[in-house]
Structure formats: C-alpha cells, structure tokens
C-alpha cells in the first residue's frame, strides 16, 4: 500500500515538474543574468555612491525631479558616459567603463521618466559661467556661513567647512553649483534656502549663485592650473 503510494506520488511530482518546462530557479541560477531594466543598471552601476534608491547617498541624490528636469537628457548622458569632476567615473565602455552607450541611454531615460515625473526646471539654470568672487563672499557670509563656518576654515560650522581646500579640490565647480541650486535635502541640509537668519522667501538669484560658486572656486588651491 505505502509503496504504491510513494510510487504514485513521485510520478505525480515528476510529471508536474516536467510539464512546465524549465523551472524558474534555472534562469536565476545562470550566474550574471544580463541586467535588463534601468533599475537593474542603476543598482549595479550607480547605487554605490548615489544611494540604494537614489534618494540619499554619498553623491548627489538623483531621485530629484527638479534636478532631473534642469539637467538635459543629453547633459546627463554625457556625464554618465565620460564622468565628471574628480569622483564621478566614466561609465561608457569606450571610456574604460563597464556599460554600453545604449545601456546608458536606457538608464538615463528610465531615471528621467520614473524619477523626473512632474519636475520643473529650477529658475536658476543648471550650468553657467562663474561670477565675481568678491560679490560671492558677501553672499556666502549672508547665506552659507551660519552652517558652514568662516571661510578661512578655522571655525568649521555645524555642517562642516565647504571652503576646506581639500574638499574644494575634490568637487568641480559644476558640483558646487548643483549643490547651491538644488541643495542636499536628503542630508537635512538646505543650501537652496530658506537660510537661517534670513526671510523665508529669500532665494539665490542666478547671479548670486554664479558669484558664490566663484567665491568657493577662488578658495581652491591651484596647483599648476589644474581645476577639477
């Protein structure tokens, strides 16, 4: 009796399995299944610095509709392909990176449509020329200094110095500009206002942004003309 039962049971198991072609586990067991979705590409290639879900990480959060709307698609593709500043690596295969141009386009398109939903470009243009360092010093004193301390670096302020020469050597002017315009709200930081001791409606104009970035850039030590 029990032997018959076992026989029947095993036959049932085998035939059930065999009908449904190859089991699901098989496709997963082939190591390194190709990364097909843009989220997979993001997790594999970006999440280390930009955060697991793009909202908080060491580098600029990308789950930021306003930022994605301000940076053009092609601008973003260019950054991903060729890298930027000191610590954003070039990702394109032709630049020594790990993913193809098509994958980069897929990644950027996916990011823009999923995370850029309803975002409006910031009033201040994402990119721009440097302004006047002297004027920037005044802007810094009025809006940045309360958190980031005196610009000579002796008193670092509650959020740490942004005029530290080593910090400045590692961030590009564009990265500074993005930080001033879009802030790092993921860190509880403001940067783009409202500023302590200032009216809540106070925001930085385009020229003020250009000036304060120029001021910060002027604090960067210049070794043989090298700028990040």
């Amino acid at each position: 009796m029990s032997r018959t039962f076992l026989l029947v049971a095993s036959l049932v198991v085998v035939t059930c399995g065999a009908c449904g072609q190859i089991p699901l586990q098989q496709s997963a067991s082939t190591s390194e299944a190709p990364v097909v979705t843009w989220k997979g590409l993001y997790a594999q290639n970006c999440s280390g610095c930009h955060g697991a879900d793009g909202s908080i990480g060491g580098a600029r959060p990308l789950r930021d509709a306003s930022y994605l709307a301000s940076v053009s698609r092609n601008g973003l593709i260019d950054i991903v392909r060729r890298g930027q500043g000191v610590l954003m690596p070039a990702m394109d295969v032709s630049q020594g990176g790990a993913i193809s141009s098509e994958q980069i386009a897929q990644l950027v398109d996916g990011m823009m449509s999923d995370w850029g939903q309803g975002g409006k470009p910031h009033v201040v243009a994402w990119a721009g020329e440097l302004g006047s360092p002297q004027a920037g010093h005044a802007v810094y004193a009025a809006t940045c200094q309360s958190c980031h301390g005196l610009p000579d670096g002796v008193a670092a302020g509650t959020r740490g110095s942004v005029t530290d020469p080593n910090y400045l050597r590692l961030v590009s002017n564009q990265a500074l500009r993005s930080a001033v315009i879009f802030g790092r709200s993921d860190l509880g930081g403001l940067c783009n206002g409202p500023y302590p001791g200032q009216p809540a409606s106070r925001t930085l104009s385009s020229s003020e942004v250009a000036d304060v970035v120029a001021f910060l850039a002027s604090k960067r030590p210049n070794f043989g003309g090298h700028t990040p």
């Binding site: 997790a43 594999q44 290639n45 970006c46 999440s47 280390g48 610095c49 955060g51 697991a52 908080i56 990480g57 060491g58 610590l87 790990a98 980031h148 670092a156 959020r159 740490g160 110095s161 942004v162 530290d164 080593n166 910090y167 590692l170 961030v171 860190l187 509880g188």
Partner: peptide, 20 residues
C-alpha cells in the same frame, strides 16, 4: 564599488570633506 551603497546612517553624519 558601484553596487553596494554607502550605509545611509553613515552618510547622514558626515561633513562635506568626510562625504568626499
């Protein structure tokens, strides 16, 4: 280096230089 995020609780504490 590209796929394992810096832990969020560590990121939150950092100054700009430490963040770099």
């Amino acid at each position: 280096w590209t796929s394992v995020p810096t832990p969020v609780n560590m990121v939150k504490q950092l100054t700009p230089l430490q963040m770099q």
